[in-house]
Design a protein around this nucleic acid. Structure first.
Lengths: 128, 128
DNA sequence: TCTTGACTTAGAGTCGACTCCAGGTGATAC
DNA sequence: GTATCACCTGGAGTCGACTCTAAGTCAAGA
């Protein structure tokens, strides 16, 4: 798969894909005879994972560390688990925080709806 | 309340508070005789709201627009409701996205735990 | 053969949101 | 009276994460 297809498939710009490669988040992408990237199965799985993690706001640095541990093989399983556990906890906390904000927003929207109803009522009475 | 107390109370740096003021997110903070900010009740309520919204990732620009509508009085109630509704929907979508990532993380962590158990079993068998 | 278009690279630029700095003022402690 | 300290201002710098630019290569179609 060439960069444009991957870009399309995962809705990331080719620039972003190349950027991920040069910072070491997605290393060793294979090139064909004329130097063009040919993304393989493993690359695609990795990209999907990265996209998912990034969409939840996990920092790129953490993902680079995690990917480097994967490169180093089975001996790093515990370290990898620790990274994911830490990020899982941070993410859960962020979701809770955002849920609170969501509740507040809903509450405020409701209040505005009531205020609008009252305004409308007053307008009708004003007309009569 | 002076800037240091506000900073303490809401866990934001004085720099951030001054920054919010100069970009128009928190205008008209009163100064005392010697030019020092004196935050009043209304300022504090606003700061708390801003902090809550920012912690959920709402963009500063949107908050500026919202605050400007508040300044303009009751005629902007509908517009304000529309802003909050849009942001509420975006936030709900982001939370859903993050929840998916959280699920994936939990799933991966579980897989790592299983892998670690197997590794431990092998070590014991290797010893015997 | 020549052009088009997708790709390559290295490096610079942008954006949102702060964060820091230099130089200055005013009230209080010694 | 002078030193300290918290504050002030305008402007510059930083950080994470892209995003864009310029100059070049290569394969395929008219």
């Amino acid at each position: 798969m060439k960069i444009a297809e991957v870009s399309e498939k995962y809705d990331m710009s080719p620039d972003t894909l190349r950027y991920y490669e040069r910072i070491g988040l997605l290393p060793h992408v294979h090139r064909n005879g004329s130097g063009i990237r040919e993304y393989g199965e493993a690359d695609l799985r990795r990209i999907e994972f990265i996209r998912c993690m990034r969409s939840a706001g996990l920092p790129i640095e953490v993902l680079i560390d995690y990917m480097q541990l994967i490169e180093q093989g089975d001996s790093t399983i515990e370290a990898r688990k620790d990274i994911l556990t830490e990020q899982r906890d941070l993410l859960a906390a962020r979701i809770q925080e955002m849920q609170k904000t969501l509740d507040l927003l809903n509450h405020k929207i409701e209040a505005y709806e009531k205020a609008i109803l009252i305004k409308e009522k007053e307008m009708i009475q004003g007309v009569e």
